[in-house]
Design a protein around this nucleic acid. Structure first.
Lengths: 341, 341
DNA sequence: CTAGCTATTGCAATCGATTGCAGTATCGCC
DNA sequence: GGCGATACTGCAATCGATTGCAATAGCTAG
């Protein structure tokens, strides 16, 4: 740049021939300062590409204008790092935050000190927290809830958590998926996913709802635990599902990644999809429309999800009571489950 | 928490019966302070869950211990938001940064002021920049290079950029992919990707290298522009490639996402993969092993990529001369291109 | 002509931690 | 006993911007 060393407010003030206080107020367009003075200071500031030192401002104002987003994933599977769904959500959150003038501090919770929240909050690195996990019961989150820390969670409600949870209506999603499978004539179903995660549990429950409503015997619905990866979807399908052929005729996978793994295994085994086994996933990641057969799935609305997370958090930071939200989901019927055409 | 309001260093000092300076030094384990004093102060600090106010420290030390990561994507395609490859890379970067004690500020460059770097650097929000784009020639990056701002770029070299670029050896990757296709007997090839992006251009050049070495006429190699999405891969294949059947017998896609889109189109058209057309992608995203047929691809090493980005940046921030790096790539031959078996 | 306003501007404290330099106490050694 | 060295510790300035309160000037009304 032109100026060898960083400009400070003092420099600008000197150049404009005013005091620091006046310069500060002028830059923030405080109407108490004379219009002409304001313009002059502002012009000088732009000329010299002056940027307010965020650190100094933050110290003085006791705000950081930064939100920490924590991706809390299973240490074992590293699920997050490969799930495209998360990136979509992250992108939306980033945009929404910057819209509100906030920066986004991203952290994958390898940092598994129990500290967590306090690392960002107490140290004043961030003004609030957005926690994205696949909603597994996490004692650290419970602990946070006891504190004054402003945070929101992406996930699924299980009971009446004392903190705001934003997420899709997973139960409804599960219901839709199962109803669809049943409507396609499936009678022996498998749920592929880890129900220790709230969200996944909800999807499973929704599935059971639908089955019960349809009068399907509950032992006709198997649940099989599975990590959030295509790889594990593939493995679990190979290891456990082939044994149940040929009765088995419908699979509902807890995520599209899992579904695609399962699909691979089925196709390798020359099982016709959807004729012999119909398959439905969850998320609607970009790829799911482009596998073969294309994957039926329950679409999560990342757009409104991200916005809701940010807005509820900001609400909470303003001292108001934030609300949990359940976002509507939508069933997309594609080739992997549509038997008639 | 126990303590209603935030503890400050002064509080700790008072409790320990020492001065602030001593407390500060004790906490940082400065050996000039008596061992016993240090322990006492540290113990009191932990007891009261004291966390150093990062803002104050940053102001005083003139460092933020924060690196900004900028995902610069095409406004038009929003490519980044859907490409799993980016999330993988991001994850690695995040971990590596936190290993070095740095936080990560994430920004998608919707913020398309020309400012950009200065927003983070001049305002002291970050000490350095990591820019991730698919390497499209970007005037803003060129401009940054003129300044003192410490930054590194993930991408592909085109000439002798005056800034450090870390990326895969894209040319070699392209060469490997093409050699493989040729070895499978393909003679009429298509490259599917936007060569205005440095990285993609390199992949294309590598492909041409291989073809030339094999004595293939250059007009047997078509290049077709395509966004970074499965969707566009699908569309472009439908719109332009079917016309070239049946001569066309090999496709090299600039990314796995594109490849999967193309694959979909081909399969819908009942074209046998790899018998009639062999297909190779780039990246090795998690899904590529699980589509059907599984996708041959050139694997980028995100692990060493992320680490290299961080390490070169830190090197540069210490005033040393950083180096551009080209990471080795690896061809993974899977079903989409392996004709004999 | 002066008290009382209003419109602007500046002084100085403040946010919380770090650090150069000065100060004090203790110790060793001749 | 004295003197310098050694080992700690504390004082006070500093980072850069914000803001409550005081101060000044210009102006109006009585």
């Amino acid at each position: 740049m032109n100026d060898k060393k960083m400009m400070t407010l003092a420099d600008i003030a000197k150049l404009a021939g005013v005091s620091e206080s006046t310069a500060s107020r002028a830059l923030r367009n405080n109407p108490v300062i004379n219009q002409a003075t304001r313009e002059k200071v502002q012009q000088i500031a732009t000329e010299h590409q002056f940027k307010v030192n965020a650190t100094a401002r933050n110290l003085r104002t006791q705000k950081s204008y930064t939100i920490a987003v924590i991706i809390a994933f299973d240490a074992k599977t590293q699920q997050s790092v490969s799930d495209p769904f998360l990136l979509e959500l992250l992108g939306v959150i980033a945009d929404e935050l910057s819209l509100h003038g906030y920066d986004m501090l991203l952290s994958t919770s390898k940092r598994d000190d129990k500290d967590w929240g306090s690392y960002f909050l107490d140290s004043k690195r961030a003004d609030g927290l957005i926690i994205i996990g696949q909603g597994e019961h996490d004692p650290r989150v419970e602990a946070l809830a006891q504190t004054q820390v402003p945070f929101v969670v992406w996930g699924g409600r299980s009971g009446d958590e004392p903190y705001p949870i934003i997420g899709s209506d997973n139960r409804q999603g599960g219901r839709l998926a199962a109803e669809h499978l049943l409507a396609q004539g499936c009678r022996q179903l498998v749920f592929l996913g880890d129900i220790r995660h709230n969200e996944i549990e909800q999807r499973h429950l929704g599935m059971l709802d639908a089955c019960q409503a349809a009068g399907i015997a509950s032992d006709a619905v198997q649940q099989l635990s599975c990590d959030f990866t295509a790889q594990d979807g593939y493995l679990k399908t190979q290891q456990h599902l082939f044994a149940r052929l040929p009765e088995l005729d419908g699979i509902f996978a807890a995520s599209d990644a899992i579904a695609m793994g399962a699909m691979k295994a089925l196709l390798e085994h020359d099982i016709a999809i959807p004729q012999q086994i119909a398959l439905v996933g969850f998320d609607d990641i970009a790829m799911s429309a482009y596998c073969t057969p294309s994957l039926s799935t329950v679409k999560q609305n990342t757009q409104s999800g991200g916005k809701a997370l940010v807005n509820q958090l900001l609400t909470r930071m303003q001292g108001q009571q934030p609300l949990s939200e359940q976002l509507a989901v939508k069933l997309l019927c594609r080739q992997s489950s549509l038997r008639r055409l």
